[in-house]
Design a protein around this nucleic acid. Structure first.
Length: 850
RNA sequence: GCCCGGGUGGCGGAAUUGGUAGACGCGCACGACUCAAAAUCGUGUGAGGCAACUUGUGAGGGUUCGAUUCCCUCCCCGGGCACCA
């Protein structure tokens, strides 16, 4: 009557495994197709239904590609270094190696229980020394190229994890993993110079097919802005302030400069700064604040005016004050700015804050000089303007009109030479109060002023990125050891290649230390070593790599996973690269995805890989939320365990349900009822084959061809939900009229990638001796997939009034004649003049009447 | 504030070179089978209306013979970035 999935799912999984049915061949004459899913972090919690969504979708793509004659590489592995395992190991007093092996075994069991067509011959594990030998090797290449370096810098220190973090790992001022507090700590750290690749990482995005939101997020993170670097001379000093601005056209309005509290110039100017005590106090107060505090307290701007030191505006020649203020960041641009309070919101706020202090207000208030007038007042948006005090409300005038009236009045005063402290305008426009440049539109002004500055030797065109170099050191045990030694004589000495891998030593205690040193530092006989260069005493580096290291190149290792001479054979790399389709979570867009593109671009420049980009196409799946519509979490108690669904309903049901749940790239809530509905569909399929129809059915054959067409197109477009629904429609129809075997076999073929176990079981029951998964993907006959008769909609004045059934190829005249014969239509047309008759072939007719 | 998504029945969602809104599934109602229930099968199901018909895709405008789809203004939800000069 119905089927018991437990009777055949495990059976087929084992048979496919034993037969190595899905192993990719490196020497195939077929067209290659590399399908990649982000390899999981084998956590103690086991597989998440979110993994299943991603893996099932790409499994379908991989299976369909195989059936269509492609040589498919669909690998899987484990990204197993990382904090949760280490913390689990510490808590339960077991070695992280043991915990990792156990977790990998559990994940493998779960992945196999879902029937994914992974190539199990190519599994990689980032914590395997045979694997991380090459992670270390790539690190040494970075070192050789000068892109890995040590720096003493303030880093993001997670208090709970006791570990330094990259900027990318800090979310809302908190640790990306544990959500704990971040402190600033100055530490000697290994860095990777990802900023050297900022432009390439940006340009590369134009050459690949990434989902628009992924591309936008990467662009956002890289944060390129174009502008100018300008030197401001300092009175009575040979020093100068180098500033970066994106608005060099507002240079005539620069009425003060600001240095960030960390700026090196402050120390140099110390002898001239008359209020050094006050300045020093401000600097140390700023240093004590965390980044989060700095931005949280951003509402009120603070700062100190340097007494006895001023700068010279290079175009106006005006002497202007210098401030130190923490609204200027040391890490961006040159760490110093020219401030244009008339055209920058932040500078305007700061100027107002300072001008409210009596000692500044009465002595020497900050000038607010407007140098840009809006070109078209009607077009300005309200958020380009900020005002010191809201203008008086006028009866019957919209806020925007009030604003425009105020601006027009203010600018007429400004042009009379009166300074206005009332407002700031941040938009583009036409230059005023800018000497010879008056009348120039913003864009043109920018070009001209840069040329002018270059000729005068006080500035140049400049580009800045928000992207910072990658903090690559971690002070924990469970990561790849950084393969260098510190020699008193020779300095930093890389380990020779023959000494790789540098394995993690066994250790008694892998707890993090309070001092912020790696647990490895305590293993004296491992730390103390000899210098490979001079043979003298040396100390090993005790920091390890971040968990992003191993995942930055794993897709390369899949191509040649057992190679001991190289990370992969160049000929194999040339055959398989780039990855044709890569799917993963949105949460990795500015972490893993950016890092791995960076590593790949570096390896390309070093001629180790044949393509400049690793991934030709990147897509992303939406999250699966709990039945309550909230993110699944243990504390909410809304976690769905795939094991339970597989046990109760079967792997095919879980797979099919997760495809049917909604559009692949959008978030979707779990629904128990939906799972049951999909299971019912599969039972319907089963019953259909228990009693096949004897006679052929041309009508049903037409439907089948339509279904083949739709499913093929939907897999290509990754509309898995509608592919499932079209399969349901066909099965419903077949249930009504009976399914002949020849049509049933094609149904099984197109259902096979979705429900591999059930289709294999039925296939064999039909008497076949080879696997359905070796079958050819059916092609459809366009003539059969087309309808001979169609329903033509007839509307009057755009409103549907009747439908008629006609031949698909019907012409306009004939259709109109038939339409006019309809009683319903006659009623609407009766006594009215037909002004227009519109005929859309195959779709509809519209009568426009008076 | 800026940059991406998204807003359609009781629910998940379908339909966009503009052309019958609500496919498919869930839920619900009724019917068949059954002593009964479950399962299964069948019928119906946006709202209002006996019906003719009216109305309906976040709100309001616009273009069009015709708008979920295109344009303008705005609201709400989700994600990312944010004192980035």
């Amino acid at each position: 009557m119905t089927f018991d999935h437990s009777e055949f799912e495990a059976k087929w999984q084992k048979k496919w495994d034993d037969a190595k049915l899905f192993a990719a061949a490196d020497d195939s004459g077929k067209e290659k197709f590399y399908v990649l899913v982000e390899f999981p972090y084998p956590s103690g919690d086991g597989l998440h239904v979110g993994h299943c969504r991603s893996y099932t979708a790409l499994d379908i793509v991989a299976r369909q590609a195989r059936m269509s004659g492609k040589n498919v590489l669909f690998p899987i592995g484990f990204d197993a270094f990382g904090l949760p395992t280490e913390n689990f190991a510490i808590k339960n007093k077991i070695h992280p190696r043991t915990a990792t092996d156990k977790n990998i075994a559990n994940f493998t069991r779960q992945l196999k229980s879902l029937g994914f067509s992974f190539d199990w011959e190519r599994v990689v594990d980032t914590t395997d020394p045979k694997y991380y030998k090459w992670t270390q090797w790539i690190f040494l290449k970075f070192l050789e190229a000068g892109l890995a370096y040590q720096a003493k810098i303030p880093i993001n220190w997670c208090v709970d994890c006791k570990i330094g973090l990259a900027n990318e790992e800090v979310v809302d001022g908190k640790c990306e993993r544990c959500g704990g507090k971040i402190e600033r700590r100055v530490k000697q750290q290994w860095m990777l110079a990802i900023t050297k690749y900022a432009q390439q990482l940006l340009d590369g995005l134009e050459t690949v097919d990434f989902l628009p939101r992924i591309k936008a997020q990467q662009q956002n993170w890289i944060g390129r802005s174009e502008g100018a670097e300008v030197d401001f001379a300092i009175t009575n000093s040979s020093e100068k302030i180098k500033i970066f601005t994106t608005r060099p056209d507002t240079l005539f309005g620069a009425t003060y400069c600001v240095l960030s509290p960390e700026h090196a110039l402050l120390e140099k100017l110390k002898p001239q700064i008359q209020n050094w005590d006050e300045v020093a106090k401000y600097i140390s107060a700023a240093a004590a604040k965390s980044d989060l505090e700095r931005t949280e307290l951003a509402k009120e701007k603070t700062g100190v005016k340097l007494a006895g030191v001023t700068a010279i505006n290079p175009v106006s020649g005006e002497e202007i004050p210098i401030f130190v203020a923490d609204y200027v960041l040391a890490s961006y641009g040159t760490g110093a700015i020219m401030a244009v309070p008339a055209h920058d919101q932040r500078d305007f706020d700061f100027a107002n804050a300072m001008n409210s202090r009596p000692e500044i207000k009465y002595e020497n208030p900050i000038k607010i000089i407007h140098v840009v007038e809006p070109e078209n007042y009607e077009k300005i948006s309200e958020n380009q303007v900020s005002v010191f005090a809201a203008p008086a409300k006028d009866e019957g005038m919209s806020p925007k009109d009030g604003l425009i009236r105020m601006l027009k009045f203010q600018y007429s005063e400004i042009k009379k030479g009166i300074e206005s402290h009332a407002f700031c305008f941040a938009g583009d426009g036409i230059a005023i109060n800018s000497g010879q440049f008056d009348g120039l539109p913003t864009a043109e002004f920018k070009k001209k002023i840069i040329t002018f500055l270059e000729e005068k030797g006080v500035g140049k065109m400049a580009i800045n990125f928000k992207l910072r170099d990658w903090v690559f050191s971690r002070q924990r045990y469970w990561g790849e050891p950084i393969p260098v030694v510190h020699c008193e004589k020779c300095g930093i000495v890389p380990l020779p290649e023959k000494d790789l891998p540098l394995e993690l030593p066994p250790v008694e205690k892998y707890e993090p230390t309070e001092t912020g040193e790696s647990p490895l530092a305590a293993i004296t006989d491992w730390v103390q070593t000899i210098c490979p260069k001079c043979g003298g005493a040396a100390r090993r580096e005790t920091d390890t790599m971040p968990n992003w290291a191993g995942s930055s190149w794993y897709f390369l290792r899949y191509i040649d996973p057992r190679n001991n001479q190289a990370f992969a054979d160049p000929a194999k790399l040339k055959y398989w690269l780039p990855v044709d389709l890569y799917n993963g979570g949105m949460e990795h867009t500015v972490l893993h995805l950016l890092y791995s593109r960076f590593w790949h671009k570096f390896l390309f420049d070093q001629k180790f890989v044949p393509t400049p980009e690793p991934y030709a196409r990147r897509i992303s799946h939406g999250m699966i939320l709990g039945p309550d519509g909230e993110k699944m979490s243990k504390s909410r108690g809304n976690v769905i365990n795939p094991d339970e669904i597989v046990k109760k309903f079967g792997a095919d049901t879980l797979r099919l349900y997760e495809m049917f749940i909604g559009p692949f790239d959008q978030a979707a809530s779990w629904s128990e009822g939906g799972v049951a509905g999909v299971r019912k569909f599969l039972e319907k399929v089963w019953r259909l084959f228990e009693k096949l129809a004897a006679s052929p059915n041309p009508e049903l054959e037409k439907s089948l061809h339509k279904t083949i067409k739709k499913v093929s197109q939907d897999i290509a477009g990754r509309h898995f939900n509608t592919a499932v629904s079209s399969l349901m429609i066909f099965v419903n129809e077949a249930t009504q009229v009976g399914l002949p075997q020849n049509l049933g076999e094609d149904l099984l073929r197109i259902l096979a990638p979705f429900a591999p176990h059930l289709t294999e079981e039925i296939w064999v029951k039909l008497g076949h001796t080879t696997s359905i998964h070796l079958e050819k993907w059916p092609s459809f006959d366009s003539a059969l997939a087309k309808d001979e008769t169609i329903t033509l909609a007839i509307s009057v004045n755009g409103k549907l009034r009747d439908t008629i059934s006609v031949a698909a190829e019907i012409g306009k005249d004939e259709a109109l004649t038939l339409a006019k014969q309809s009683e319903k239509i006659q009623k609407w047309l009766d006594g009215k003049e037909i002004r227009k008759e519109i005929f859309v072939p195959g779709k509809m007719i519209n009568f426009v009447i008076g």
